[in-house]
Amino acid sequence: MSRVIVVTSGKGGVGKTTTTANLGMALAKRGHKVIVIDADFGLRNLDLLLGLENRVVYTAVDVLAGQCRLEQALVKDKRHPNLMLLPAAQNRTKDAVRPDQMKQLVNALAKAFNYVLVDCPAGIEMGFQNAIAAAKEALIVTTPEIAAVRDADRVVGLLEANNIKQIRLIVNRLRPAMVQANDMMTVEDVQEILAVPLIGIVPDDERVIVSTNKGEPLVLAETPSLAGTAFDNIARRLEGESVEFLDFTAPNDGFFSRLRRVLTTPIGKKSSK
């Protein structure tokens, strides 16, 4: 049984594409056949983050226009044979594709892959409608900011209206020090508003910027980073494993943060921080 998962957020710049690239790679590393689909027609980036830009020959639009077969458009990852990319066209716009066509593409790919990850564009217009057309599950990416959370809330509503019930939350770019200083929304604050089960917390990490620019997903790095481990954990949780959430407070563990953790951790349950 293959799983079709859309990675979406509403707001731009919160880390949808980074999440898609890293989860795709993490799942491929775990032995699954994974296809990542760039649904951001006209503003494609997923190929860049995977370092596959110069291998793109055909795009999804060429497939739909009947200019090539679907297999011809798939780009195999240069590091991991289990991972493939279906690139978006850069010279067209979101209106070049209709949701029913997207559904057709995704359903065809779902036959050959265990995981189909769709990288959704920002916004809730045509591009969003295309991206969610065939999805059965959704990962909502948000940062702990009021605007991102508001947009995520809107998107959760739209997903539910489109009969996508299996929705899970990724809180990205969390800065533990700021949370401790009470300058940033906590994961609990976000969860309280969205009321969607949490599947991962990814800390803000400079190495994400380095990895994006190099086109090397973090989960491949030889020296593990907190963010990379967080993405690996999300992949494991996607598969139903129960993995403890990372403790980001460890480096500067003061008396108050420890006290706070004790007070905020429900007894007998897994730590949620």
């Binding site: 639009v61 060429d62 739909l64 226009a65 009947g66 067209r92 716009t93 209106d95 070049a96 594709v97 209709r98 066509q101």
Partner: peptide, 11 residues
Amino acid sequence: DNPASTLTWNE
């Protein structure tokens, strides 16, 4: 009508 093979007016 296949939007993939036809340009929209905007384009």
